[in-house]
Design a protein around this nucleic acid. Structure first.
Lengths: 208, 208
DNA sequence: TAACAATGAGACATCTATGTCTCAGATGAA
DNA sequence: TTCATCTGAGACATAGATGTCTCATTGTTA
């Protein structure tokens, strides 16, 4: 029986991240309140989902703040970010799945802002020589956020122990993102514009 | 104007992956057919979404087959899997976001089956000594699939060049998943049950 | 050309989630 | 106790998407 807005929103995430089309009854029940009270807290479904998105973004922004990502060594900053964002991984999972939110202007702006901060972190890391430059900063940002979301989903479904989350995320991601100390410089190319044309994401349609 | 079912389903994915609640009108328009014809092909919305999910699973299963993941060196098998699954990344993105599907029994079974194959691949790789054993096979499976989904989202939004997709995915993931040739054995532990209690995914609620 | 099959457009009924309202009971403060 | 406030339960109307139908048109085959 949670009466304050944020607690209700967190309960809502638990339902909505699994079932984006869940009815309001369901969400109210998950929060331990009645549908009437839910309506008193949030004018309607649209507003509710919007606020869930905003909460997620606020939390992720707070994680970026806490981690002080704009300062110091990029690898250390990323490790701090991992620790700061894992507790809110489920919110991030919701954000990752709900592209619908990006139609709302102010949410989209807030989202772009946080992504820009991530992007800047990776760019800085590449300039510092700690992150690989064969992988674009945009891809590193996307991949990082997706893995945070993956942590959220895994924990929710009981496939990942919460205590292992930060370690698993940091090890996997940094292993792929950090420049190898041994490797001298960006491998010129193992992937020219050659062979397999993995081009349009719409493969042949002739499979039975 | 695509009249065969699979082509319509692929058009539906393009819409549904961005907006899970899109109306049937919208989906029909995206497929270039009328709502009437859409109804002739699929009995209703539920059936449509179900078939989209099945298509995604069929494609991913086909990728696992094509890549021959049950055979040979695990790293090579995974590289083959990357190449085979990237063209269907958008379908995977849909699957990743639509946990709702897992309420349908036969879809869930098919899903578990493919995940089990992934899991087995990583376990085999760990036994072969090519994949790190500090990261659980379950987490590696989840992370791999999430990154494939991330590739799909990125390509759709134009943030990742289709030609770079396979390379970016393989490099990032394998970098984190492969056991370092240098590192002698599984680092005993850098993450005991220490310090930060990143435990319950539900942080303090006192942020303004 | 003629018959046939498939499609698109639109009208229509239905169904269900949503939004709004009322009222009774519970909680808490004066 | 008494009053004020908040909540839950339920009824009710509404809106909008879905499902079904008809009919004209198109394109294909004989």
């Amino acid at each position: 029986m949670a009466t304050d807005r944020d607690t209700v929103l967190e309960a809502a995430v638990g339902v909505l991240s699994r079932r984006p089309t869940a009815h309001l009854d369901e969400i109210a029940r998950a929060a331990g309140i009645s549908r009437a009270t839910l309506h008193r807290l949030f004018p309607g479904r649209e507003a509710l989902i919007r606020e869930v998105g905003l909460l997620g973004l606020r939390r992720f922004a707070a994680a970026l703040d806490t981690a002080d990502v704009e300062e110091g060594d990029a690898e250390a900053a990323l490790r701090r970010l991992v620790d700061a964002s894992v507790p809110d991984a489920m919110l991030c999972a919701f954000l990752a799945g709900e592209n619908q939110l990006y139609d709302v202007d102010d949410i989209n702006d807030l989202w772009e802002l946080q992504i820009a901060r991530l992007h800047a972190l990776f760019l800085r890391g590449q300039q510092q020589g700690v992150f690989r430059i064969e992988l674009s900063a945009a891809w590193l940002s996307e991949a990082f956020f997706d893995l945070v979301a993956g942590v959220g989903w895994s924990i929710q479904d009981g496939r990942l122990a919460p205590r292992d989350a930060a370690f698993s995320l940091a090890e996997l991601f940094l292993g792929g993102a950090l420049r190898r100390p041994g490797a001298p410089s960006p491998a010129p190319t193992t992937h020219s514009t050659s062979d397999r044309s993995t081009s349009d994401c719409r493969p042949d349609t002739d499979k039975p």
